[in-house]
């Protein structure tokens, strides 16, 4: 990887420069929290944000999107194109960049998801270092670091950024839009110091030893009923999760009843109908089995396919769950709780 150093006061130049031929999406404030939204003025951007309400996935796979338009009379697809305009996701933390790599595994392998791919291919990623907050547990999954999946990554050294350039595109836009200089030994030493302090900042050190084994061995543990009784089955955890990718597909007819659109929306395994089949059978009828499935899939199902857990420890579900259920609590209970 190549590295450059950018003075902090020069950063608006980069955002302004990128804005000339991209839609720049970055963290801005909303009612005391933060959202990834289009930036019209570099001063709007809040690089001191802790986390956002929704993860960056919404810019690659929106909560609702039209997959195709159709004509009922001859069962014809009239249009299944989507135009992905050039975009920058600016200021993504390592957890969120890692989450996109996990989504890539699902949507870009096997049968490629063309909607995701079109947007992914046309999105530039500029990462930004962060400070651990009380709900973060990325350290547990090693997703507090990121080594690919971005074009530029900026580590905050106080008065300047240590810029890691991962791609030609990243190097090119940095060179074009902002004054930067070569890295000195002191810069790298300061970078190391910042990383060292960052690593000391985590408060959650949950024991994940042999988690897939525990998930199977304690599949019938009362732990699941305990959390199940608290669960509202509201699906908030899935919506705010940067790695949850499940979706539902529905047809919507125009008022003329002759044409319409096939639309997909984010879905959640916490909803009762999620695993129900046509004859009335529901494979996960009760709350606790649905809650369990979410963890089972994240920490074993996905792992069995892609060798990583489907969680980056961003803590959004912990913040979003009205009942305060969190992966940290669930894993701790599983480590401590009774076996079958």
């Amino acid at each position: 990887m190549f590295f450059r150093v950018v003075d902090k006061e020069r950063l608006p130049d980069l955002i302004a420069g990128l804005s000339s031929d991209h839609e720049v999406i970055g963290p801005i404030e909303k009612d005391g929290r933060f959202v990834f939204a289009p930036i019209s003025d570099p001063s709007q951007i809040r690089l001191d944000y802790d986390t956002t309400l929704l993860p960056p996935k919404k810019w690659l796979m929106p909560p609702e999107e039209t997959m195709m338009h159709f004509n009922c009379a001859d069962e014809e697809v009239t249009d299944d194109t989507v135009v992905a305009s050039p975009r920058v996701l600016f200021g993504l933390h390592p957890c969120d960049i890692n989450s996109l790599l996990l989504l890539d595994n699902v949507f870009l392998q096997g049968h490629v998801d063309p909607y995701y791919k079109a947007r992914r291919d046309n999105t530039l990623i500029v990462g930004m270092s962060c400070t651990p907050s009380p709900t973060c547990f990325c350290n547990v999954w090693d997703t507090d670091e990121v080594h690919w999946g971005f074009d530029i990554f900026l580590t905050d050294l106080g008065d300047r950024y240590y810029a890691s350039l991962r791609t030609v595109k990243g190097a090119e836009v940095l060179d074009r839009h902002v004054d930067s200089r070569a890295v000195t030994e002191k810069d790298t030493a300061d970078f190391q110091q910042v990383v060292h302090e960052f690593k000391q900042g985590f408060s959650n050190n949950v024991d994940t030893a042999q988690l897939p084994v525990l998930l199977d061995a304690k599949f019938d543990s009362p732990v699941w009923d305990d959390f199940g009784s608290e669960c509202l089955s509201c699906g908030a955890c899935s919506m705010v999760c940067p790695t949850c990718y499940c979706f539902d597909v529905k047809d919507r007819l125009e008022v003329d009843q002759k044409s319409g659109a096939r639309v997909r929306t984010w879905d959640s395994c916490q909803f009762k109908e999620f695993a129900a089949v046509a004859h009335g059978q529901n494979f996960r009828e009760d709350r606790s089995s649905r809650l369990k499935y979410r963890y089972y899939h994240k920490y074993w199902g996905y792992l069995s396919k892609f060798e990583r857990v489907l969680c980056v420890g961003c803590g959004r579900c912990t913040l979003a769950c009205p009942s305060g259920i969190s992966p940290v609590k669930v894993i701790e209970a599983l480590q401590a709780g009774g076996s079958r």
Binding site: D80, H111, D113, P114, A118
Partner: peptide, 23 residues
């Protein structure tokens, strides 16, 4: 950079896997 259209991106040579074909 230019817009990318979904029908232009390489999708394992078979096009959009979500698209049903008339039968």
């Amino acid at each position: 950079m230019n817009d990318i259209r979904v029908d232009e991106c390489a999708c394992d040579g078979v096009g959009n896997a979500y698209r049903p074909w008339p039968a």
